[in-house]
Computed example of a mutant assay.
Amino acid sequence: MALSYKARKRVAILVLVVGLPVYVVVAVNLVALFDRPSILVELAIYVGLGIVWILPFKSVFKGIGQADPDEKPEQDK
């Protein structure tokens, strides 16, 4: 099932405004469960978690910055 451009744009905004902050809180609490590792290990964990969260949403974000392909072009008069 392919989402329309407008639906993908709305889902992308929802993911960024609601999902990303929730994911950040979960990631920080997950790392806080263990003793604090060295700064390089902690950085690697956060970079890895930062990459992992976007993988399921790759198709949603692809092409969002482009013009709407379904929109009819306006002709100059």
Rank of each mutant, 00 (worst) to 15 (best):
V41Q: 05
I13Q: 10
F61H: 00
R10I: 09
P69G: 00
I45C: 06
P69N: 03
P56Q: 08
K6D: 13
E74K: 13
I13C: 10
G63E: 02
V52W: 10
V25P: 02
A2N: 15
A27G: 01
P37N: 07
L16P: 01
I13V: 14
G19Y: 05
S4T: 15
R10G: 14
I51M: 13
E42W: 01
I45L: 09
L43N: 06
A7G: 05
A2M: 12
A12W: 04
Y5M: 01
L43G: 11
V52F: 11
S38R: 09
V60F: 11
D76H: 11
K77W: 13
P69T: 00
K72W: 06
A27P: 02
L33Q: 07
K72E: 14
S59I: 08
D68S: 01
L33I: 10
V15A: 11
G63D: 04
V41C: 00
K58F: 14
A32H: 10
K58T: 15
N29D: 12
R8F: 07
A12E: 01
L30P: 03
L16C: 13
P21R: 07
V25F: 14
P69Q: 02
L20K: 08
A27Q: 02
K62C: 07
P69M: 02
I39G: 06
E71V: 01
D76Y: 10
L30G: 14
L49H: 01
M1C: 10
A32T: 03
P56M: 05
I54T: 15
I45T: 04
R10D: 13
K62V: 10
V25E: 09
D68A: 03
